[in-house]
């Protein structure tokens, strides 16, 4: 079945602006905040938000990092396709800081659980929030909910939500791919 486009490039741009504004509302000058993009795909959202916050909204001294959760996943030796690790870039202090995890799609919540364990190795943040571009709200395995959502999507278990970025594809877009039965 052909993929159905959920979001176009201008729509994604608009969502990112709203998410940036919501972050500013809660984190003001970001002096006590660290934005953490989750590898591999959350870092694209992070990079866009950082770019917007700095160039469009004039936020200076933004602290951010990129966290890899491969070795903290709960499906090692269980998943048919084990993941390849990505580089960690955590040259930030998170102790007593308000951390915001940033990911592209929130699905089962298991990646976020792994990220909550992985972040322990770097210190004790004062709080952790979750920002996700797409929230597949009917697919959660764990009691994890996002604090900032770009768009909620109702997709059944076998559907796939694919987020594409202009860095790796021709343009920004989000597609819903229905599993053929």
């Amino acid at each position: 079945m052909t993929p159905k486009q959920l979001l176009s490039a201008p729509q994604i741009e608009l969502l990112l602006h709203r998410l940036a504004c919501q972050l500013i509302e809660n984190h003001r000058d970001f002096s006590a905040t660290v934005l953490i993009g989750l590898q591999p795909r959350g870092v694209y959202v992070l990079d866009r938000l950082v770019e917007l916050l700095q160039s469009h909204y004039g936020i200076e001294n933004l602290n951010s990092g990129k966290l890899d959760i491969t070795f903290f996943r709960d499906d090692f030796r269980r998943s048919e396709k084990p993941r390849v690790a990505q580089p960690n870039q955590m040259e930030v202090v998170i102790e007593n800081k308000a951390v915001v995890f940033i990911d592209d799609v929130l699905y089962t919540g298991r990646s976020i659980r792994a990220a909550l364990t992985a972040i322990d190795a770097y210190g004790r943040p004062s709080s952790i929030e979750l920002l996700t571009l797409i929230d597949r709200r009917f697919s959660r395995d764990l009691p994890i909910q996002p604090d900032y959502v770009g768009r909620q999507v109702d997709a059944i278990q076998n559907d796939k939500v694919s987020v594409q970025w202009r860095e790796t594809h021709s343009e920004d877009a989000v597609y819903l791919i229905k599993e053929s039965l």
Binding site: T70, F71, R73, P87, N88, T117, A121
Partner: peptide, 22 residues
Amino acid sequence: ETADHFKEVINRPIKKVPSLRD
């Protein structure tokens, strides 16, 4: 390539990952 990632892990304040807990 895998060792590159683990070298970063063993230079963290907490040098441990839970992958092989079972």
